[in-house]
Amino acid sequence: MLVRLKPDATRTGPAEAGLYGNIVSNVRRIIFGANPRRTTVRILVLTGVSVITFGWILTPVRTDGTSMLPTYASGRLTLVNRVAYLGHSPQRGDIVAIRLAGPSVVYIKRVVGLPGERVAVKDGQVYINGLPLVEPYVRHQRAWNVDEVTVGNNEFFVAGDNRGMTEFGATDYGRVESDRILGRLVF
């Protein structure tokens, strides 16, 4: 004879069932909020805003190397403001990110010369149109020498802050086309 057992009400009494239900509903409420649909929308909006902000507006970068010492030490995290030059062009003294083949790896340099200017470096001192440029951010200086060049209409002359490196070359200073400048460093 088969006897179907009824659920034993004494094992899980209404009080325990109520407690269990409360815990579940509280956990659900903590994770999904009072209104799960609204929470999902919030999460989607936040994700979208984050992707747009950190993908196209404020791109995070980690510095590597010594060419920007003492302003930027190797390994420091910072942000590139990619909309900084929508309204105006880079100014002298701005620290900019310069793209190579794409935006994954960038050079970080300071704008020293503006379009149309003549730039030269003699014994580590930068000269703009024949006049010495005051650069309080430069602490280390060696006998860098760069023959005078005229910066093109669509170019900027950039250089690293660390002029004390024993070796310097093609990736440490030079003219850069304006369309390669991704944006200005925020801090």
């Binding site: 590597d64 390994g75 083949a101 990736t171």
Partner: peptide, 11 residues
Amino acid sequence: SSAPSMDAREF
């Protein structure tokens, strides 16, 4: 990361 470890060139 603190050492001068990386260089990058475009080709």
